[in-house]
């Protein structure tokens, strides 16, 4: 049998020399710290937003449509006028936006673990969960950008948060803490289910009642009696109450405390489960 054409000897020798030189000329660095590897994976997530910015558009499309739809179609009926309604609705729709986006953390992990790059990360001498933690760090950036877009729209539609910039920032911090805990749930789906589609499906099935049976759109006292306690104790409602209070400048310490407690509880329950599953992931 004939051998395939061999490149010119000089070219071959050049390749060999270059590869050997690059291997010889390198000192072995000290291992990276956990903080540094998590930060590096966060940077990776930001690079992905930079290279594929349309993913931000995808996740903010619905909240933008919802904001416009509810404000102008139902605002008058619900609060007398669209501009009155947006004062009530804006903080809620920001919560809804972020809560919905959290599921993409699970979808992204599911896509990632099936790629060769994940094997490479796992075969490196680094703290394994830093891939996950870094991805979540990147997601925080995504939540923040999406919230800013929706808040910007709300302000353009007449939303005037009485809590001022500080109130809005405090509300965002609280919301991000809650979202972070929540994202661990979708990572469980992301690790357990086979395809990104099924992760999305499962997440939406859980998210829909969680987001709609809340005080985001209307006050619970307009609802039938049996539904009111369900809506009022829905964790998302508790967070919405605190976020709304902070943005409007009338939050009580109790509201904030409960929302923090809910966020901490979600994190305390799901983070250990997720981390265990993640460590066992093969």
């Amino acid at each position: 049998m004939t051998t395939a054409t061999v490149p010119a000897t000089t070219a071959r020798q050049q390749t060999i020399n270059a590869v050997q030189a690059v291997c010889a000329s390198c000192e072995r660095p000290a291992p990276a710290s956990v903080l540094s590897t998590v930060g590096t994976f966060g940077w990776r997530a930001l690079l992905k937003i930079k290279h594929v910015p349309q993913q931000l558009f995808d996740v903010t499309m619905f909240p933008i449509l919802f904001t416009l739809l509810f404000t102008y179609l139902f605002g008058g009926a619900l609060s007398g006028s669209p501009s009155d309604y947006i004062q009530f609705f804006a903080p809620g729709i920001v919560v809804q936006t972020v809560v919905f986006i959290t599921m993409y953390t699970g979808v992204a992990i599911n896509t990632d673990v099936h790629k060769g790059i994940f094997d490479r990360f796992r075969s490196m001498p680094i703290w394994r969960p830093s891939v996950l933690m870094g991805a979540m760090l990147g997601d925080l950036a995504r939540y923040t950008i999406a919230s800013a877009i929706v808040l910007g729209l709300a302000v353009a539609l007449g939303f005037r948060p009485d809590g001022g910039v500080l109130g809005v920032l405090a509300a965002m911090v609280l919301l991000l803490a809650f979202a972070w805990g929540l994202s661990f749930i979708w990572v469980i789906f992301g690790l357990k289910l086979r395809t990104p589609e099924s992760v999305m499906q499962m997440s939406i099935t859980v998210l829909f009642p969680l987001v709609f049976a809340t005080n985001i759109f209307v006050r619970p006292k307009t609802m039938p009696g049996w539904l009111q306690p369900i809506v009022e104790y829905n964790p998302v409602s508790l967070v919405v109450t605190a976020v709304r209070g902070l943005m409007q400048g009338n939050a009580t310490g109790g509201d904030i405390g409960i929302a923090l407690l809910v966020s901490a509880a979600v994190l305390a329950v799901f983070a250990p489960i997720t981390m265990r599953l993640y460590a066992k992931q093969q």
């Binding site: 690079l47 290279h51 790059i117 490479r120």
Partner: peptide
């Protein structure tokens, strides 16, 4: 080096290598 490219498709070639360099210290 895995069977299916163990590099990140969405990043540039340089970003891939810088990423790994950072992870390795």
């Amino acid at each position: 080096t895995g069977q299916f490219a163990s590099v990140d498709d969405e990043l540039t070639g340089r970003e891939n290598l810088v990423l790994l360099g950072r992870l390795l210290g």
